[in-house]
């Protein structure tokens, strides 16, 4: 079965450093990612609790402040494979692109996680100042 693979991106009218200050703190995921009610981090382990009550253990595999890259995988037998990646890329001193990609088996969950992440990117555009120009879906 091929993996499900999705990617979403948004341009945000804030500096990459400002946006990374939120995204680069994995314990604050629930501040911007919809449908997550709690989140705790110990070392390279993160546990998230979904609004459905489901808890998912995760392994943080990359947290690179210089690259502004966060990468993780869901560590559950239900997910034979998962990798999620968030990159924050400076476009100027006052704007950046945030890209979220997820590759997943089961492939259907790539759609579900990716769409929730896309809503999270929408949320970032509300948390930070109004985008400098509209971005396509």
């Amino acid at each position: 079965m091929p993996l499900g693979s999705v990617r979403y991106e948004r341009v945000i009218a804030a500096s990459a450093d400002d946006v990374w200050a939120l995204i680069g703190r994995p314990e604050r995921l629930h501040d911007w990612f919809p449908g997550i009610t709690a989140c705790s981090v110990e070392g390279n382990r993160r546990e998230i609790t979904l609004q459905s009550g489901l808890s998912l253990p995760e392994e943080i595999t990359v947290l690179d402040d210089r690259l502004r890259r966060f990468q993780y995988r869901i560590d559950s037998p239900f997910f034979p494979y998962h990798r999620g990646t968030i990159d924050v890329i400076a476009l100027s001193d006052t704007s950046c692109a945030v890209m979220y990609a997820t590759d997943c088996d089961p492939r259907t969950m790539a759609l579900v996680i990716g769409a929730a992440a896309a809503a999270g990117l929408d949320r970032l555009t509300e948390i930070f100042p109004t985008p400098i120009f509209p971005t396509p879906e």
Partner: peptide, 14 residues
């Protein structure tokens, strides 16, 4: 709204 909704993002399911 979609039924497959572990994040409970949709009012129908919530």
């Amino acid at each position: 709204e979609p039924f497959m909704d572990p994040f409970m993002r949709f009012a129908q399911n919530r």
